[in-house]
């Protein structure tokens, strides 16, 4: 077993033993959703109109919440140092880390989102669009987020900085993801938006690991 697979496995075991790590963002997702009917309007027709956008914004925020810890512990306890010492490619490592993060944040979110969209009175024909847009979109959130997490891993109050750095980069995904769901709801074609998300995903998978690898090295040069 190579160090990359060993690390993925190890991080998943850690997540399984600390369920809060992935359950808390999920709870946060649920709570943010609950705020909208309370703050704006519980009218089902109105909720149906904003459901697509609200679910996507909530998904994005809850992803952001779990990103902060992605590399922090590894930097602080010396795991990162051992990665570099192992001579394994940091590129593969970055992909592996983003994958782990997706497994514990994006994947549960994608599975739970249709259930919660029910509470937001999402139009019936938008469910598959919601599921697939999240399935394609959340890995991009993890990959781009890994760049921000790697850049801020060594910073004392990195969480806030992380949001500042990453949110502008998230906007295209939000636009296309929410629009796919919205268009499906009003019975319009939405495959185009999914196509965009898929191409962004390919791009993010090839390019972001370079940035993550570069950023991780910063935390090592002391």
């Amino acid at each position: 077993m190579s160090l990359v697979t060993a690390t993925i496995k190890r991080d998943l075991v850690i997540a399984a033993r600390n369920p809060g790590e992935w359950l808390n963002p999920l709870m946060f997702f649920l709570m943010v959703l609950a705020l909208f009917p309370l703050a704006v309007d519980p009218d089902p027709n109105f909720l149906a109109k904003i459901a697509a956008g609200v679910v996507w914004v909530a998904a994005l925020l809850s992803t952001l919440l779990s990103l902060d810890s992605l590399f922090k512990a590894d930097v602080e306890d010396g795991t990162l140092e051992q990665w570099l010492a192992s001579g394994e490619s940091l590129y593969a490592m970055a992909l592996g880390k983003a994958f782990t993060h997706w497994c514990i944040s994006g994947l549960p979110l994608t599975i739970v989102a249709p259930l919660l969209a029910l509470m937001m009175n999402l139009p019936e024909n938008a469910y598959s669009a919601l599921f697939f847009s999240l399935l394609l979109g959340t890995p991009i959130l993890s990959l781009l987020g890994a760049v921000g997490a790697a850049l801020t891993a060594g910073v004392r109050s990195g969480g806030l900085l992380l949001s500042l750095v990453i949110l502008p980069l998230y906007t295209p995904i939000l636009i296309f993801g929410a629009s796919a769901v919205y268009h499906a709801g009003i019975e319009m074609e939405y495959l185009g938006q999914l196509g965009f998300l898929a191409s962004f995903l390919c791009m993010a998978m090839t390019l972001t690991p370079f940035a993550v690898a570069g950023a991780l090295k910063l935390n090592l040069s002391r």
Binding site: M1, S2, L3, T5, A6, T7, R10, V13, I14, R17, N18, A73, E76, D77, G78, T79, E81, Q82, S86, G87, E88
Partner: peptide
């Protein structure tokens, strides 16, 4: 820095170290 993960057992930690 010892790169020990505290929620894991010594055996699991060691297994990760030697995976290369």
């Amino acid at each position: 820095l010892s790169a020990i993960k505290k929620v894991l057992t010594p055996l699991e930690n060691l297994r990760w170290f030697v995976s290369s």
